[in-house]
Design a protein around this nucleic acid. Structure first.
Lengths: 142, 142
DNA sequence: TTGCGTGCAAAGGTTTTGCATGGCA
DNA sequence: TGCCATGCAAAACCTTTGCACGCAA
């Protein structure tokens, strides 16, 4: 059994993740932000707290093509148990999609195909409306 | 314009990926396998060929929680354009799912939610039937 | 012969680990 | 006072790059 103490660093990391819940961040971004604010936190400590938050289900971890290193994003699994997530490959925004179609889909894939989807892990990658419209305007095909 | 030569290493990497199309592999696994077969290939070369195969759409690249480093898997995008993929988190098998429900889902998410799903990138993570049944039998909750 | 391919060595990053110190309870 | 937390330094990895040599065409 391991207990845990309340520390400035622990609070700071959690606060940072919540404050940036609308985008994904890397360890370097977190570290740089703390350094700029005059309250630097060692990267080791940041890694350790992110790992705990991950285990506890408060954040998600994934890799994004362009980014260097892992990306983390706040998304409380206790609140996100019932819906899926859409990740825009262009701007990186995370959309929480409440939609009965998706729940039906899970049911269908389980009952008809015998596959049990893990909604915590599964993310739909693609292009959000804003980026899609931007692309049409500028003719940018990326 | 860059031409390309036919080499033993190039053939070996492609052959390995095709032979292992039912699971994902890491660069180390590929390298070790070649070494064991008595025809070692430098990791640099493996990385370079995988990168090309990726650009050409013959393989996919992603990260898996347990694995160290990136995972690659053969899945010709020219053949896999019309369906989605299910990845078992336990045994690592990749299921190519031809299902009209999923195509309808793409349509629905695009028309109703304005999000354009990228089927090349999107993978449903979860548990395949075999692993699910195994788990029930052994009572293993992982 | 020309130019791409190969692989060693080294560099550049990210992430983890060891360990002495610091801080919470 | 006990532990846990912290962060520096170092290690362990993964991946990329530079460069001389090898090999396909």
């Amino acid at each position: 059994m391991s207990n845990s103490y309340k520390t400035k660093q622990k609070d700071a990391v959690l606060k940072y993740m919540i404050d940036h819940k609308d985008s994904h961040v890397t360890v370097n971004q977190i570290s740089d932000s703390f350094a700029e604010n005059g309250t630097p936190v060692g990267v080791t400590t940041i890694y350790r707290h992110l790992e705990k938050l991950l285990e506890e289900g408060f954040i998600r971890k994934y890799t994004v093509d362009g980014a260097t290193g892992a990306c983390f994003q706040y998304a409380d699994n206790r609140q996100c148990r019932e819906h899926f997530h859409l990740m825009c490959e262009k701007c990186g925004c995370l959309i929480h999609l409440e939609c009965s179609h998706l729940n039906e889909l899970s049911q269908h894939i389980f009952s008809e195909h015998g596959f049990q989807i893990n909604p915590f892990r599964t993310v739909f990658y693609g292009k959000c409306k804003t980026c899609f419209d931007d692309e049409k305007k500028t003719g940018d095909t990326l």
